[in-house]
Amino acid sequence: MTKIVEVSGLSKHYGKVKAVDNVSFTLEEGKIYGLLGRNGAGKTTIMHMLTAQIFKTSGELKVFGEEPYENEKVLNRICFIKESQKYPETFRVKDVLNVSPLFFPNWDKELAMALVEDFRLPLKRRMKKLSRGMLSAVGIVVGLASRAPLTIFDEPYLGLDAVARNLFYDRLLQDYAEYPRTIVLSTHLIDEVSQLLEHVLVIDGGKLLLDEEAETLRGNASNVVGAASKVEDFLAGKRIIHRAPFGGLMSATVLGQLSAQERMRATELGLEIGPVSLQQMVVHMTGGNGNSEEAAQ
């Protein structure tokens, strides 16, 4: 697998604030990645560094094997759809679509026009007059029609209704099947996109918490419910990502597969074991209270 992005020890500090703190990961060619985390976790900062829009404080950063800053070979192959993308005041929707091919060499005009129709975008309306959802839709059109080898969507569906979001997933998968490329979906709404993802990166507080295949993660966490002392006993030495005491009871979320023996033991202890969705897992991992602490040995 070709590595499209290689990041190691990447940090971005604003004074004493560590927006991104010693993050390392790689992105491989042709996969759909999810960059997940809460608002302000550092996702956007990382993406801005990948695209040389802001400057790193320290660390290594290679995109298509090279430094992205002022590098035409690299920048030519990236399309980064920002959540807060600014457009010139006088630009109409069609102006944006007219200038896009000047910057994205793989631009597919037919696809762009088909998407405009799908999303019912008013071509002659000025960008500043668009609703939040329409603004997102323009970003989606540009992102998909650019067919850039590395396409990054930052919170791509803000303001979109369920129908439009569904349309986005459909068109994304459809075009990705025909023209495979590396896609990064950055979002705090994990529920809907999780099925689309092949690989998941979870960021919290500027740090990389998780870097794993999505399929490995599904079913890799369990919810254990029962008498608090017995739950603690059972989970000793395991990675607990969430604890919710409830009277004398406790519900704990634990990472890692439980073996058949462990499940038997849980039944003997009178504990109930339930499944945990990817969304719940990420929420618990980035949830703030008592997150990802090691249980006492």
């Binding site: 695209t51 829009q53 002022e70 590098n71 035409e72 920048l75 030519n76 990236i78 399309c79 980064f80 920002k82 993308q85 600014k86 457009y87 010139p88 005041e89 200038v99 896009s100 910057f103 994205f104």
Partner: peptide
């Protein structure tokens, strides 16, 4: 203010 952020995020080099 109108064009710099727009064009840089569309992948233009600063020099260009």
């Amino acid at each position: 203010g109108q064009t710099y952020p727009f064009l840089i995020s569309f992948g233009a080099r600063r020099k260009d």
